[in-house]
Simulated scan of single mutants.
Amino acid sequence: MRGAAFWAVVWLLLFGSVPDAAKAALLRGRVADIDGKPVAGAKLFVYDTANVRRPATFISPPSAGDGTVAITVPPGTYWVVARLKKDESYGPLMPGEKHSGEPAVMDLTAEAELAQEFTVADIRDMGRKRQAIAAELVRLTGRVLDSGGKPVANAYVFASAMKEGSQIPDYISAWTGADGSYTLMIPAGQRYYVGGSTRFPSPAWRASTEVMTPVGKTDVALDVGLALE
């Protein structure tokens, strides 16, 4: 009996977790920049709800040199973003950090494995793939305000040469602070349409404010309303 009990314990230690492991799902990703080159060191932030402005439910290991990354999660539906951050915090995104925009919805309730491509870009350079960086920049600063004049936290400010569109705007700020404050650098001497957005401005957006950036002036104060989404 003593020997049987011993081997029963061994069996439980070796195989007792197999049924739970069999229920796990595999989420694979490949992270690239806006030029299609693989990005190493990026992580998948996995959420069990559409609210991605909070600590992630799961965070993957860093992506490999070829941009590939994988994480095992329980079966379910997840909202996934790829981020290349200086730390593992969920936000706000800061200049120099990269992200993939709106989360990809991945349904792993029935599938045991799913793969997804993620494109990440610097929030300072988003949408400027084919644009030369201007020699003179103007710093827009102010707050994002809702229709009642109250500050909006965790919003973006964007600037575009077009008043509305479905493509990524030319320039996008980091998330606003608790007081709705933002900073956005754009070229001087040009006309831009500016708006605020509580989500990454896609698939469609319409700016709320028109501004002509002055030459010879480095700072412009501008409060921005939420754009039509």
Rank of each mutant, 00 (worst) to 15 (best):
A135I: 15
S173I: 07
V157A: 02
D146G: 00
M185K: 15
A161V: 11
N154P: 00
R143A: 12
D170V: 05
V194M: 07
A135N: 11
T141N: 12
A174C: 10
G189V: 05
R143N: 03
Y192C: 10
A153S: 02
G180Y: 01
L140Y: 04
S147H: 00
T176G: 04
A155Y: 06
L184E: 00
A134P: 01
T141M: 08
S147D: 04
Q190E: 14
D170E: 07
D146L: 06
G195R: 12
A155T: 01
E164F: 15
A159Q: 02
Q190H: 11
S166L: 06
P187A: 10
R191A: 13
A174E: 11
A134F: 03
A188W: 11
M185T: 15
P187D: 03
F158C: 02
R139W: 14
Q167N: 14
G165Y: 01
M162E: 15
I172K: 11
N154S: 09
G165C: 00
R139K: 14
V194I: 13
S160Q: 08
R191P: 04
R191C: 07
Y193K: 03
R139A: 04
S166M: 13
I133Q: 14
V144T: 08
V144G: 02
L145M: 05
Y182G: 01
A161I: 12
Y193Q: 00
A174L: 10
I133M: 15
G195N: 07
A188S: 15
R139N: 06
A159I: 04
G196Y: 01
P169K: 06
M162I: 09
S147Q: 13
A174F: 15
D170M: 13
P187N: 07
D170W: 05
M162K: 13
Y171P: 08
K163T: 04
A134Q: 08
G196H: 02
A159M: 10
D170I: 06
K163H: 02
Q167A: 13
L184V: 10
G177H: 11
R143V: 03
G180Q: 09
S181P: 06
I168D: 07
P169E: 05
V157M: 00
A178T: 14
A132F: 14
Q167M: 12
V194D: 01
I186T: 02
A178N: 08
G180P: 04
L137H: 11
S160W: 01
L137R: 08
Y156W: 13
P187M: 14
S181G: 07
M162A: 15
A153I: 03
S173H: 11
G148P: 02
P151H: 00
T183C: 01
P169N: 08
A188G: 08
V152D: 04
A188K: 01
T176C: 07
S197A: 14
A134M: 07
F158Y: 00
A153C: 06
S173R: 10
D170T: 03
V144S: 08
I186L: 14
L184G: 09
P187T: 13
V138P: 04
G177D: 15
I168N: 07
S181D: 11
G149T: 02
A178D: 12
P151T: 07
A178K: 09
G195M: 05
V194N: 07
A155N: 02
A188E: 03
I172C: 05
S160P: 06
G142D: 00
G149D: 05
Q131L: 14
W175K: 09
K150E: 00
Q167K: 14
R139F: 11
G165F: 03
V144K: 06
